[in-house]
Design a protein around this nucleic acid. Structure first.
Lengths: 209, 209
DNA sequence: TGAACTTGCGAATCCTGATTCACTTCTTCC
DNA sequence: GGAAGAAGTGAATCAGGATTCGCAAGTTCA
């Protein structure tokens, strides 16, 4: 039995696969999903089209992985930022909203692809996973806030979805026509403020009552 | 010169065109944009494929019109509801949010198509128009509120976008798995409450200070 | 070296759904 | 009735991007 895959060949294979994923991600980040044909990815990776199919059963599978990775990367930032369990929920929400906004504004094309651009159904499901991830991250913070008495009891899942959707919508417009540094800062500040306002904090509720 | 288009033929032509638009809208409302092939629309309208092309230069044109009309219809409701200039901004926002939510929950598939489903670029632009319309409607109410002193000065456009995006996001999830009447009412109530909370009302700001 | 097998190649092929077009049917008006 | 033109038909064609596949090149090991 003459041939046997060895460590070296495995490594080379993994490396090529990696190169493909990286090229696909670059392509999406640069020109959006619409620009990411298999041809384009192959060209960018310096490989032939057929080679892509040696490593992925279909375009949908490839991009599902690309989106999964990019999403995870984004999500990790938010989760990390919102994880400061010892801080008040309002601060954690503010930090999450700020991180979300800054990252979206920093990589507008990728953010648009991840959040809103039309994609294959198979890839769409990764998008939903990302949104659910964001929502859950915010929901956890809100639930902590309720438990600690900082926030009124409320529909935590729904408010979390509102926050994610609100941030996304407000950012996707500006994502294309990103103005100068100044307006960008102002936008981030506004968004953080709006997110804070929307929280059902105890003191506000009592004062209003 | 033997043939001359007459009132009757014009009427018939317009009627057929109307039938096509209606069939296309029905198809979208029933099975989403994904299900709306030219074949499907023609079949539903009781016409041949070619006939569609006697009335519309392309599928994109047809659906641009379909989306434009459906959007306008939705928008009119919101604008109307939010138009009560003599009422406080908070009430108008609440009414708008409630109408938005109820309509989305009543026609989930259409709402999804209008708000989030992947569509042709040409159709996408109609979607953007709808979102802008919603945003502007809320923005007008907010601006009125600021002018009357009911609300703090703030970035009205951005907050309006946040409201629209927040509502959309929170509704698109439930759009598919719509629970019983009870949960639906609760969802609407939560959303209205969240929208109200997010408003920078004077009294709350002062009380918090 | 060479048998057994993997990876890389890229032009050819396939797929899916929009679009066309030669033809038939209907209207109008002399 | 019949010429002129419009509307309707649907099988055939087209488009463009994903996918295949026969062949070449590279690896492994006896």
């Amino acid at each position: 039995m003459p041939y046997r895959p060895t460590e070296k060949t495995e490594a080379r294979k993994a490396e090529t696969r990696e190169r493909i994923v990286a090229a696909a991600l670059d392509q999406v980040a640069e020109g959006g999903y619409a620009s990411a044909s298999v041809q384009a990815v192959a060209g960018r990776a310096g490989l032939a089209v057929g080679t892509i199919y040696r490593h992925f059963p279909s375009k949908a599978d490839l991009f599902a992985e690309v989106f999964r990775r990019a999403s995870q990367r984004e999500l990790d930032v938010i989760v990390e930022v919102a994880a400061a369990v010892d801080r008040p929920a309002s601060e954690r929400v503010a930090a999450g909203a700020e991180a979300f906004s800054r990252r979206a504004l920093a990589g507008p094309v990728l953010a648009f692809a991840l959040l809103a651009e039309p994609v294959d159904p198979a890839v769409e499901s990764e998008r939903l996973r990302l949104r659910r991830g964001y929502r859950d991250a915010f929901a956890r913070v809100l639930a902590d806030g309720v438990e600690s008495g900082e926030l009124e009891a409320h529909d935590v899942q729904t408010l979390a979805a509102v926050l994610v959707g609100g941030l996304g919508e407000a950012l996707v417009g500006p994502l294309k026509a990103h103005d100068g540094r100044g307006r960008r800062e102002a936008l981030v500040a506004s968004l953080v403020q709006f997110c804070l306002n929307s929280l059902p904090t105890r003191q506000v509720q009592e004062a209003a009552a």
